[in-house]
């Protein structure tokens, strides 16, 4: 399990030959459009502060062009920041020397790409050992570690296939195996599943969640898809025009959208799968009456199903240690599932 989170502090990125010159103007409130029209520079990121928790999945969500790829590329410094810092294990990635950065990328991070970015001239196994090869791990060791991950992502038997002989979903499994073989604590995934068909996408999400259950890496997952964000994200940050406009758990965002832009975004969400029992329960247990006990971390959909099945209109709620801490009513549950937060 990863022991350190990633701290992104006061990060700014201005694309263009003299990004530095405009940093004060941007800090003073110059907008992206203004910067572009007056000075021909593109505001990529503005004052980003995100604390990405260790061993959890941080989702960064936003529409195309909102700066998601730019942000994730600052974590392994594929893009140089104009100002600000990215702290990992109390070291600022942005201050690392070339060789420190190389070591950091080889051992601490691994990345999965939207367009897979596999080496077309190498087989599945050849791609999977790539990171280990760069680390200088000996051939046999690298091979056996790679085989383990190829098996884990469900590609056993395809070791000697070339990427262009595989479907998109399978190619991205190779991308995932290549990243996991590195044994890095940080996994960076830039719209890793966006290019895949919906069914295969859900499949890959399950594979990822499954692996994460066991490995507890610090995963940064980029997506423009809210369902994907809510399913995967322990925490979610929403970007617009290079700025974070809201961050928190999926439930927090769905319950309390920061503005109408986000409210619009979450309109279609299945709230029953996002809001937990804890959010709507009363602190007073129902004496004797309730036949069923739900966990406070259960989602409303589960709770409603359980009550309907038991033909009850209410239920008691317990915490992780099975202690009864409150109760909910079916009516409130259904209400919370169908009413969107107003804005």
């Amino acid at each position: 399990m990863a022991s350190h989170g990633i701290e992104i502090k006061d990060l700014f990125k201005i694309f263009g030959p003299h990004g530095n010159k405009f940093i004060d103007a941007v800090k003073g409130g110059m907008t992206k459009t203004e910067l572009n029209e007056k000075h021909g520079h593109v505001l990529g990121l503005k004052d980003i502060n995100i604390s990405m928790p260790a061993g959890q999945i941080q989702v960064v969500m936003g529409l195309s062009g909102s700066g998601k790829s730019t942000l994730i590329r600052h974590i392994n410094r594929l893009i140089e920041p104009t100002a600000g810092s990215v702290q990992y294990e109390d070291v600022d990635v942005c201050q690392m020397s070339t060789s420190e950065l190389q070591q950091f990328r080889r051992h601490k991070t691994a990345m999965v790409f939207q367009k897979f970015a596999l080496l077309p001239h190498r087989t599945v196994i050849g791609n999977t050992v790539y990171g280990l090869e760069l680390q200088g791990v000996n051939k046999d060791e690298a091979r056996s570690r790679a085989l383990k991950w190829i098996d884990r992502v469900g590609l056993s038997g395809f070791e000697d296939h070339y990427p262009n002989q595989l479907s998109g979903g399978m190619q991205q499994r190779v991308g995932l195996a290549r990243a996991l073989s590195n044994d890095a604590d940080i996994l960076l995934m830039d719209e890793a599943f966006s290019a895949l068909d919906p069914l295969i996408r859900t499949d890959m999400q399950s594979v990822l969640l499954d692996i994460q259950e066991e490995l507890r890496k610090t995963i940064v997952f980029i997506t423009h898809d809210l369902d994907e964000a809510l399913r995967l994200g322990d925490r979610i940050a929403i970007l617009r025009d290079g700025e974070v406009i809201q961050q928190g758990t999926g439930e927090e965002i769905v319950l309390n959208p920061a503005d109408s832009y986000i409210a619009d975004f979450i309109k279609e969400v299945n709230r029953g799968r996002v809001i937990s029992v804890e959010t709507i329960m009363n602190k007073t247990p129902i004496e004797g009456a309730a036949n069923i006990v739900l966990k406070s971390s259960d989602m409303l959909e589960t709770a409603a199903q359980a009550m309907a099945q038991a033909q009850e209109t209410s239920a008691n709620v317990c915490d992780d240690s099975k202690k009864i801490i409150g109760s909910i009513h079916l009516k409130d549950t259904i209400n919370a599932m169908v009413t969107a937060a107003r804005h």
Binding site: N76, F104, R105, H107, A110, M111, A117
Partner: peptide, 11 residues
């Protein structure tokens, strides 16, 4: 894209 992947893996 492939060059970027190589960079990301610390080549």
């Amino acid at each position: 894209d492939i060059l970027e992947a190589a960079d990301a893996f610390g080549a």
